[in-house]
Design a protein around this nucleic acid. Structure first.
Lengths: 194, 194
DNA sequence: TTGTGTATATTCACTAGTCGGTATACTTAG
DNA sequence: CTAAGTATACCGACTAGTGAATATACACAA
């Protein structure tokens, strides 16, 4: 029985993360992951019972880092809540300009697995996106927004729309347009206090 | 040299469309497409020089039908422009409840090809999405909206966000939330005329 | 200290099947 | 007779997953 915190397991997940994100889960073989991790495929299968298992572990490992990154951008901005929201998009647009940027790993994996809705990796993705939406709703409340859950969901839709459309057009202007739309929606739910 | 309008070619594209949309381009083999079309792989390769070529033809064939469908929903709604926009999302939500619905073929293909940004199929997808955005901007203008191109782009982001997030959560409520957000954004750019 | 048992961790070599693509030959219509 | 179109059969490369042997490390008894 392999250890859950084994350093070997971590090396495998690290290798899988790099390859799966760069090429997509369907274009990366288990052999390639094993080679990148510097061990044999049989060892990989000692630590993971299947490729599907490994894919789920890959996404699971991205949950917290992604959340922290987004939260960091929101909290670092010194403006009002509309500015804080727009800052998420501005930082996303910067990241999207990096040549290694390939969109959102959760969404791309879900797209590749569209014919297998119950796949464990899709469930991990669903949980991650729900976590983010819940965090955002919490972050919005306390800023005088009327229905923070509604606005959080609208922002989530704009973020994921940005991710998707970037893969088609490769034009970060769309992310900035989404940021302005998000700020508009925030203000639409913020009662004037004059 | 194969004919561009050959009925055999059409049969191949029809078979490819069904399989690629249902399973994703990476999970469908050329053999499977040939079998579904009722001919051999060699015949398929007489009409298409590669699988990549076939993928591009598949998406190219979806351009006009998709545009007409969206335009039909917009035009059929009898309300104001905000209601017409929301009608697109309402109809999308209905479609998304069908068990065979697997999201947007253009976006899913772009996600699968994220590591090959110049792929011909991605270009076809980019053109399609631009066509839709341009049509929408045109449809919005003449309804007293201040910057129809800006609003069209915001709506496009919400539509593609709906497609993506549906593949993760499989919950059409998100599409309806996107529709309400889109209507809000339309009204935010429609000056009061009282 | 030495020897033995045991659980964890790793390797090599392999299976059975699929992949995109093609060489060659046949059919059929003009 | 020719050329477009279709079929059979095949290629080498790659696929996920496995069987059997082995290396390593530590526990405990003599």
């Amino acid at each position: 029985m392999p250890e859950a915190q084994s350093p070997t397991r971590k090396r495998i997940v690290d290798a899988a993360t790099r390859l799966f994100y760069a090429e997509g889960i369907g274009r990366v073989s288990v052999d390639a992951v094993a080679e990148k991790a510097g061990l044999t495929k049989r060892t990989l299968y000692y630590h993971f019972k299947s490729k599907d298992d490994l894919i789920a572990a890959y996404l699971d490992g991205r949950d917290q880092p992604n959340l922290k990154r987004m939260a960091g951008w929101f909290e670092a901005d010194q403006g009002g809540v509309d500015s804080k929201v727009e800052a998420i998009f501005a930082n996303l647009a910067v990241a999207a300009r990096h040549p290694k940027w390939k969109g959102c790993g959760f969404l791309r994996t879900a797209a590749e697995l569209a014919s297998m809705p119950g796949h464990p990796a899709v469930k991990v993705g669903s949980r991650h996106k729900s976590n983010f939406e819940a965090w955002l709703a919490g972050a919005l409340s306390g800023h005088g927004i009327e229905e923070p859950e509604v606005v959080a969901r609208e922002i989530v839709l704009l973020i994921d729309g940005s991710f998707s459309i970037m893969l088609i057009h490769r034009n970060p202007d769309y992310i900035e347009a989404a940021g302005r739309a998000a700020a508009t929606l925030v203000r639409a739910r913020t009662p004037d206090r004059d």
